[in-house]
Simulated assay, not measured.
Amino acid sequence: MLNQYMDQIETLGLNLFFALIFFFIGMAIHDVLKQGKVPKFGRYIVWLVLFLGCAGFVAKGIIQMTWEGSGVG
């Protein structure tokens, strides 16, 4: 039974791994910004870039799921 769901388990594990990596990157950036006493505008720019990176990753996953579901990919 486990062999039937191996692809789904691998996909879920990989997505959770990437989410964990994004979390750790966010925590590291937060620490650097805090210790470097970066102005508020600079912090907003850094978080915007980080958010756009995460949003791109999520959009890629949604597009990939949609295409695979419809038989394109």
Score class of each variant (00 low, 15 high):
residue 14 L to C: 06
residue 14 L to D: 14
residue 15 N to M: 14
residue 17 F to L: 15
residue 19 A to N: 09
residue 22 F to S: 03
residue 22 F to M: 05
residue 22 F to C: 02
residue 23 F to Q: 13
residue 23 F to K: 09
residue 23 F to A: 14
residue 24 F to V: 15
residue 24 F to D: 02
residue 25 I to H: 05
residue 25 I to W: 08
residue 25 I to T: 12
residue 27 M to P: 00
residue 27 M to R: 09
residue 28 A to Y: 05
residue 28 A to F: 12
residue 29 I to D: 06
residue 29 I to E: 06
residue 29 I to A: 06
residue 30 H to M: 08
residue 30 H to R: 10
residue 31 D to M: 10
residue 31 D to P: 00
residue 32 V to W: 10
residue 32 V to P: 02
residue 33 L to Q: 01
residue 35 Q to F: 07
residue 36 G to M: 01
residue 37 K to L: 09
residue 38 V to W: 03
residue 39 P to Y: 00
residue 40 K to N: 15
residue 41 F to Q: 13
residue 45 I to K: 03
residue 48 L to Q: 04
residue 48 L to N: 06
residue 49 V to D: 05
residue 49 V to G: 03
residue 49 V to T: 10
residue 49 V to H: 09
residue 50 L to I: 10
residue 50 L to S: 08
residue 52 L to E: 12
residue 52 L to P: 05
residue 53 G to W: 02
residue 53 G to F: 10
residue 54 C to D: 06
residue 54 C to Q: 15
residue 56 G to W: 04
residue 58 V to N: 01
residue 58 V to I: 15
residue 59 A to K: 14
residue 59 A to C: 07
residue 60 K to E: 11
residue 61 G to R: 06
residue 62 I to R: 08
residue 62 I to D: 05
residue 67 W to F: 13
residue 70 S to I: 11
residue 70 S to M: 14
